[in-house]
């Protein structure tokens, strides 16, 4: 797997789309830091961008790369190498190349502007960590969709719909449910529903780390009470871990019995 990962990374790190992605984060973060000057404010602004952009780019890149490398995968399948090594190598290569863009694109300007002396290093790491997790989760989902659908247009459509569902539609459904059952105590239900969506989970984690949960009223207090505890942290990490693990294991299962 390491060999496939290495060469996938070589290939992708030279793709101009990766440079554009890296350049966007670099310019955007630098501009925000120059305009605001306050690291904590910039972290909140970046949170909104990362929560939408990381899953979107990982989804689009994932599905495009999986389809584009189909013939090359066939060449690799004829080599003495395990099927799972090929697909995992390609998946981790893709997720790592996107992660590097995020890490350097956001990390370099923050380091330059003196992150270590700002006292917001922990918040910054939470933001970055969530961005990386979302990249791994959504590129895994995109890879899985591309593996399950030979029709490129259908696969591409499904991948975009998946992103749209988690980034936008899911929140709409949750809001409607909360409105519909507003006469009942819903804090625990809202908590449960948030855990099922990786984007929501990341958003809550970052907000709580930024200590602005007070803005969320009573629900914020419940969230703080839950996510602030050891048990809450374990459940959150477990949930995000499962969101990475399930697509990765499914890739292996599908790759094992797929015809090429």
């Amino acid at each position: 797997m390491k060999k496939i990962l290495k060469y996938t990374l070589f290939d992708l790190l030279r793709s101009r789309w990766n440079y554009i992605y890296f350049g966007f984060y670099l310019i955007f973060t630098t501009s925000l830091l120059m305009l605001s000057g306050d690291v904590s404010t910039v972290i909140i602004s970046l949170m909104n961008v990362i929560l939408i952009l990381c899953p979107l780019i990982a989804t689009i890149f994932g599905v495009m790369y999986a389809y584009n490398s189909r013939e090359f995968t066939v060449l690799l399948l004829a080599q003495p190498i395990r099927r799972s090594a090929i697909f995992w190598g390609q998946y981790f290569g893709l997720a790592l190349s996107l992660s590097l863009c995020l890490l350097l694109g956001i990390g370099l300007p923050f380091l330059y502007y003196g992150l270590s002396s700002s006292g917001a290093a922990w918040e910054f790491l939470t933001l970055l960590g969530n961005g990386l997790l979302l990249t791994f989760i959504f590129s895994g989902l995109a890879f899985l969709i591309a593996l399950r659908n030979d029709n490129k247009i259908r696969g591409f459509g499904l991948a975009i719909l998946t992103w749209l569902f988690f980034a936008v539609v899911y929140d709409g459904i949750v809001l409607l449910l909360l409105l519909f059952f507003r006469d009942y105590p819903l804090e625990n239900a809202a908590l449960g529903l948030s855990i099922l969506n990786p984007i929501d989970l990341s958003r809550i984690l970052i907000l709580l780390k930024l200590d602005i949960s007070a803005l969320m009223g009573y629900t914020g207090a419940v969230f703080q009470k839950f996510f602030g505890t050891l048990w809450g942290t374990i459940v959150t990490l477990l949930s995000l871990g499962l969101w990475v693990l399930i697509p990765v294991l499914s890739i292996r299962m599908i790759a094992k019995r797929k015809d090429f």
Binding site: Y7, D11, E71, L75, Q79, P80, I81, R83
Partner: peptide, 21 residues
């Protein structure tokens, strides 16, 4: 199995490789 492919040289019909290598 996969080890048996050490004994095979294969030329696929469509030559498509990673673009940037």
């Amino acid at each position: 199995q996969w080890q048996y492919r050490k004994a095979i040289d294969y030329l696929p019909q469509i030559a498509q490789f990673p673009e940037n290598l």
